[in-house]
Write a protein that binds this DNA or RNA. Structure first.
Length: 559
DNA sequence: GATTTCACGTA
DNA sequence: CGTACGTGAAATCC
């Protein structure tokens, strides 16, 4: 592994075996050095964080295939979200994070970085010296940091190895996901702006020219609701308390005014229907309206936001600026650029299939052999498919009420091994015992959710093992697709928990579709820890399926 | 000004 | 009494 260190506008590309041979220079030089080595050998680059080290490279068009992201690996091994080189060093050396030193900003100018002896990477207590990262780094400091990276990664590799080959694989794929996040933030999601403007205008009217007009449009929208409630024209529809009072005056008494609570009253009074429609339009006006387009859709028609490779809880990817919350109403505006298509692929029923792997339930694994997993489950339980589906989902989410809760007993009898896994996770949550996902990501229950009651923590834990493991498989798949389709001129433009959107040149669409399927086969085998050729007769084999289609607009997907 | 509550979009 | 996330508006707490 070859370490890359960037501090300010200085960079180092290390030779961990011979620190004297470490290259040090400016960012322009870094680009040349990395591009040359990448083309020659595709090494696994060693970085403190993908964002820090690779963003400057991605910005100028240099992309690498593989890395070891020390902060992402730290998150896997130790859980939680807070991660930097100092924490990773502490974690790798078994040091107490409570004693982690913090740099004092006012110290920087007094005894700055230049005084730092290169040999002294650490403090007497073993923690990494925080002033290593400060000020304008000297060449010797940059060389010292490449050594820090190498020592940290070597220890992490040992620790991941002790957890097993699945965790080493997770370290690789989570690192790749972090690189993908840098690229996603850089590339953005292609948006057909005229269509987007048209969709917004249909919901909230044409773009207002000034504040006066905006206020008038807003008042007109409010009036569509308020005219149905004579004498309550002063009600502020944006204030839930006032809305609840307003509803009471027309005989609708509710504990809160959320959509699913109001749904049964849709036909009770026209005001309810009007209010629910108002909420939809207001959402477009405030969150996904003209300001959103202006702020986040750049002049090249790409919607951009920040991406993280893992959230704080179980390890899903997150995205900002609405990339993960885009209302279905606006999906027609997500469109391939000229000469390109969108290859959309989503993993079918990923969570129950992941449960089959994680639990090792042979009967449940057998159900995954079907295209529709719920069909054999329904047959085994002797119930209709919709009942089987809600029962399985209820088991994974911890729901106890309604028809789903009643079907749980049958599920326990049919798939005791899988259900036992979920119940054990629940108990770990209640007891605040840490858990690990299939790939070895630690889920802390002692430090997080300190205020939550036992039941909440238990349900969270029950779901986190499944959701977190599913996120690992998804990221392994995405990383493999990234690697396989880049040479075809394709780029991943959106990751949505179980769905991938890849923009591809029109004439390579078929190859990208094939690659997406092959990548799922390959990544699922690596993720589930099965080496060698697949054995069709293997009773433990769990099948994963992807639904793939070629589109020009995201809205063309059957959903 | 920062944090909490409510609401709602996605999976 | 099903999970996770991000965002905005209003209320609330400094």
């Amino acid at each position: 592994m070859i370490p890359i260190v960037i501090v300010g506008n200085r960079a180092a590309v290390g030779d961990p075996e011979a620190p004297g041979d470490t290259w040090v220079g400016d960012l322009e030089g870094l680009v040349r050095v990395v591009a040359r080595l990448e083309a020659a050998t595709h090494p696994r680059w060693l970085v403190s964080s993908s964002r820090e080290a690779l963003e400057p490279l991605v910005d100028v068009g240099v992309r690498v295939q593989r890395c070891w992201d020390i902060t992402e690996v730290h998150r896997i091994l130790h859980g939680g979200w807070a991660a930097d080189l100092g924490r990773a060093w502490a974690g790798a050396h078994g040091l107490d994070l409570a004693t982690l030193p913090t740099p004092r900003r006012d110290d920087l100018f007094d005894h700055g970085a230049a005084d730092l002896p290169t040999a002294g990477l650490t403090q007497p207590d073993g923690h990494l010296r925080p002033d290593l990262f400060d000020g304008s780094a000297t060449d010797d400091q940059l060389r010292a940091l490449t050594t820090v990276l190498s020592r940290t990664a070597a220890l992490q590799e040992q620790q991941a190895g002790r957890l097993g080959p699945r965790t080493v694989a997770a370290a690789h794929s989570e690192s790749a996901a972090a690189m993908l996040c840098v690229e996603l933030a850089h590339d953005g999601l292609p948006i057909d702006r005229p269509t987007a403007e048209d969709l917004v205008s249909r919901a909230v009217g044409p773009r207002p020219r000034d504040e006066m007009e905006a206020a008038r449009v807003r008042a007109a929208r409010d009036d569509q609701v308020l005219r149905l409630a004579p004498g309550r024209g002063h009600t502020d529809l944006r204030n839930p308390v006032q809305v609840r009072e307003l509803l009471a005056t027309v005989g609708v008494t509710v504990p809160n005014t959320r959509a699913h609570v109001l749904e049964p009253f849709r036909t009770t009074h026209p005001l309810v229907e009007a209010l629910l429609q108002w909420r939809k339009d207001e959402r477009i006006a405030t969150t996904y309206g003209y300001r959103w387009l202006d702020d986040h859709v750049h002049h090249d028609g790409r919607l951009r936001g920040g991406w993280t490779a893992c959230d704080g809880a179980a390890g899903r990817m997150t995205a900002q600026n609405g990339l993960h919350n885009l209302p279905a109403q606006l999906r027609p505006a997500v469109a391939a650029e000229p000469g390109h298509v969108l290859v959309r692929a989503d993993l079918g029923q990923i969570e129950p299939r992941v449960l089959a792997v994680v639990s090792g339930d042979r009967a449940f694994a057998e159900a995954t052999r079907a295209d529709d997993l719920y069909a054999p489950v329904a047959a085994k339980l002797g119930v209709e498919r919709p009942v089987a589906k809600v029962a399985v989902l209820a088991a994974m989410y911890g729901q106890r009420s309604g028809a789903a809760g009643r079907a749980l007993g049958d599920l326990e009898r049919a798939y005791p091994v899988a259900m036992r896994l979920l119940d054990d996770a629940y108990e770990s949550g209640v007891a605040r015992r840490p858990l690990r996902t299939w790939g070895g990501r630690r889920i802390n229950l002692d430090t997080m959710m300190v205020d939550a009651d036992d039941g909440s923590r238990g349900r969270f834990a029950r779901n986190a093992v499944i959701q977190g493991s599913a996120a690992e498989l998804f990221k392994a798949w995405a990383a493999t697709v990234r690697h396989a389709t880049a040479p075809l001129g394709a780029q991943i433009v959106l990751c949505l928990h179980d769905e991938l959107l890849v923009q591809a040149p029109e004439d390579r669409a078929g190859e990208v579709v094939d690659a997406v399927g092959q990548c799922l086969t390959d990544s699922a085998r690596r993720w589930s820890g099965r080496s060698g050729a697949p054995q069709p007769s293997d009773p433990d084999a769990v099948r994963f399926v992807a639904d793939t289609s070629v589109l020009h607009r995201w809205s063309e997907a059957k959903g």
